[in-house]
């Protein structure tokens, strides 16, 4: 199936008879990117699935009112990011996640509990290293390192200046590298 432009999807979504078909296209087009963005933040598949479902429901409710002054892709990432942060905050309140010394969430235990976890593999070590970052910095790192998002767009997703994001990414890279080399 050829990819549809955001404009085509939005136009079709406005037509009552094509609403569900347009939404299906939208989900298919962005589901993997959003899933992995969420998964890297919440770690477990079931958690990621729950968060992603909530994201799509928000999108369904808000798409009609979406104004094309930002890209659809940016808007989707913003919803996904907010849902991730809300979910992690809920987990923190329930006491169902481990917290670091500064009260931030650390999901290292969940990573180690993954059936395919291999402490010798660099990819897994990198996931553990990311848990050492504060949440916002972890977001900046994943959006840049994994999703290759330009700072300009990231600035819209996280509502932070490009300069602050660059500095944040710089710090994140250094911390991650330090973890990989010294632990």
């Amino acid at each position: 199936m050829p990819p549809y432009s955001d404009a085509e999807i939005l136009l079709a979504f406005g037509e009552p008879g094509q609403r569900e078909a347009a939404f299906t296209r939208l989900v298919r087009q962005y589901q993997e990117k959003l899933y992995w963005h969420i998964r890297r933040m919440v770690v477990g598949h079931e958690d990621a699935n729950d968060v992603l479902q909530n994201v799509w429901i928000r999108v369904w409710k808000g798409l009609e009112g979406f104004r094309a002054d930002s890209q659809l892709y940016t808007w989707l990432y913003r919803i996904a990011t907010n849902e991730c942060l809300s979910y992690l905050e809920q987990q923190k309140r329930k006491g169902s996640v481990a917290l670091d010394s500064e009260g931030g969430i650390n999901l290292s235990d969940r990573i180690r509990a993954d059936a395919h976890f291999d402490a010798e593999k660099a990819e897994w070590k990198l996931q553990l290293a990311m848990q050492e970052l504060p949440e916002k910095q972890r977001l900046v790192f994943t959006l840049r390192y994994y999703d290759e998002m330009p700072y300009e767009e990231m600035s819209r997703v996280l509502e932070t200046s490009e300069g602050a994001l660059k500095a944040s990414y710089h710090h994140a890279v250094k911390k991650v590298e330090d973890y990989l080399l010294n632990r």
Binding site: Y35, R39, H45, K121, E123, L126
Partner: peptide
């Protein structure tokens, strides 16, 4: 940069 491959499975 090549570490960007996901170790997670679905």
């Amino acid at each position: 940069a090549g570490l960007s491959q996901n170790p997670y499975t679905i």
